[in-house]
């Protein structure tokens, strides 16, 4: 299977991805540590896929990166600077997050969903925010659905609106939290194509996914996590064809 960008790479909007580094990131819910000493380097403009069983701390890791959940210890560096010393809202503006369940605003149209933060966070004019929103919606193939509300869109369309919403903020890094897990099987590829296109156009991406095909084809680096730790990390070839740890070998034998 191949993943082709829905827009020719040279036509689409180009992105300037920043580097992202995790330094011994530890996160906890109450007393329970769900992420232990995770270190990870994501070079600018590259894609890192995180795979692993549910409950292994993948989603928590993403939430630590943009401080939706405050890390317990360790550090996250965005473009070389610690996000923990900056204002959370300022950091989140620079990091896009796409959720498993889309989390679109149900009483806003697709266009308003994308334009809302442009207007209220970036402080753009109404006309300007709508112009950018329309552009981003066109980029995800939804120009004609701009006036639909989420409930009138399919899951795949909703997720593409959510991606457009995150992209509109011109993020330096995009985080995907199982973005295709809640979709119709037939619609998964459309969203993955879109993500592959972003990778080709310079976005730095950290992708939590169960789509092994995507991880193998699109990722520059794959990270396998279990029990809140990184078990193994490397190129897709290394991880999928030459897994070293027994835990990853077992995982792959179950899912592939």
């Amino acid at each position: 299977m191949t993943y082709t960008s829905p827009v020719p790479v040279t036509d689409g909007h180009l992105y300037a991805g920043s580097s992202l580094e995790l330094r011994s990131l530890t996160m906890a819910y109450g007393d329970i540590e769900v992420l232990r000493e995770v270190s990870l380097d994501v070079a600018p403009g590259t894609t890192t896929c995180i795979i692993g069983p549910s409950g292994s701390g993948k989603s928590t890791l993403l939430r630590g990166v943009n401080r939706l959940h405050e890390p317990k210890s360790g550090d996250v560096l965005l473009a070389g600077e610690s996000v923990l010393t900056q204002k959370p809202d300022a950091v989140r503006k620079r990091i896009g997050l796409v959720f498993q369940h889309f989390n679109l605003f149900p009483d806003h149209t697709a266009l308003e969903n994308v334009a809302l933060a442009l207007r209220n966070v970036k402080g753009l004019s109404k006309a300007e925010s709508r112009r950018i929103a329309n552009e981003r919606l066109a980029e995800v193939g939804l120009a004609e659905r701009a006036d639909h509300r989420p409930r009138d869109l399919s899951g795949g369309q909703q997720q593409r609106v959510a991606i457009a919403r995150a992209l509109a903020m011109e993020p330096e890094v995009m985080l995907f939290d199982e973005a295709t897990s809640a979709l119709d099987p037939e619609l998964v590829k459309g969203v993955l194509n879109l993500m592959a296109g972003l990778a080709q156009r310079g976005m730095t991406m950290l992708v939590v996914t169960h789509e092994m095909g995507f991880a193998r084809k699109v990722a520059d680096q794959v990270v396998f996590m279990d029990e809140g730790r990184v078990v193994e990390a490397g190129t897709p070839g290394d991880l999928f064809d030459r897994p070293q740890s027994p835990r990853l070998q077992r995982f792959l034998s179950e899912v592939l």
Partner: peptide
């Protein structure tokens, strides 16, 4: 749904704005 507040915050919206613009009206 908690995801509504999270989606707002992830876009860089303050708690107050997220409540006023998205969560409270719903």
């Amino acid at each position: 749904d908690r995801g509504q507040l999270e989606a707002c915050r992830a876009l860089g919206m303050s708690y107050g704005k997220a409540m006023r613009l998205v969560v409270v009206p719903q």
